[in-house]
């Protein structure tokens, strides 16, 4: 009973918030509703009893969207609306059609719900974290390790791209100041 109410509440809120994310022309509304929607998605995990995944969803997306905010801060004025240019109507047609197709498939999916079975059900008396850990290090070991290597590569690439003048402090070193000014003038 409570779970049904909670499910419909979370569903309505999540869909509404993500609609705002897509429709709004204000970057602050879009980002905030995206963050709130991501936080509410963790509610579905909690309803399903997957506490660990719910918390991971919470932590990961809170941090990830915080990083997106910093980009929004750099590129947009958060208190003004953004004028969008839609020159490519073919692309809009294609994306709209794909969304409609996905929607139809989502609504048709329950027809085949019998075919869906939980291959790795939760164990009674064992914590969520332990269950996830066992599955990660047996069945999904290879994807897990590949993801880890990809993240490592991305991290090293990021450090190399950004770290050319890491030892110089921009605020302490006067020559760095000059360099920034020169680059500005050159533009």
């Amino acid at each position: 009973m409570y779970e049904t109410i909670a499910f419909y509440l979370f569903s309505a809120l999540t869909i509404g918030l993500f609609l705002i994310t897509v429709m709004s022309k204000n970057v602050l509304y879009a980002m905030t509703s995206l963050a709130a929607g991501m936080v509410l998605i963790s509610g579905f995990f909690f309803i399903l009893g997957a506490d660990f995944l719910g918390v991971v969803q919470l932590i990961v997306y809170v941090g990830a969207i915080m990083a997106l905010y910093s980009f929004a801060m750099m590129f947009f004025d958060a208190t003004r609306d953004i004028k969008e240019k839609n020159t490519n109507s073919g692309l809009v047609f294609l994306l709209g059609g794909l969304s409609a197709l996905v929607l139809v498939m989502i609504f048709a999916a329950p027809i085949h719900s019998d075919a869906v079975q939980a291959l790795y059900p939760m164990h009674e008396g064992v914590g969520n974290a332990q269950d996830v850990g066992i599955v990660l290090f047996t069945k999904y070991l290879v994807p897990f390790e590949v993801a880890a290597v990809m993240l490592l590569v991305a991290m090293i690439a990021g450090i190399i791209l950004a770290g050319k003048k890491m030892d110089q402090s921009l605020t302490e070193d006067a020559s760095a100041d000059d360099e920034i000014l020169i680059q500005k003038d050159a533009k």
């Binding site: 506490d51 918390v55 991971v56 932590i59 809170v62």
Partner: peptide
């Protein structure tokens, strides 16, 4: 998962 929840 109390600790993770609080930190999150």
């Amino acid at each position: 998962i109390g600790i993770l929840f609080v930190l999150g």
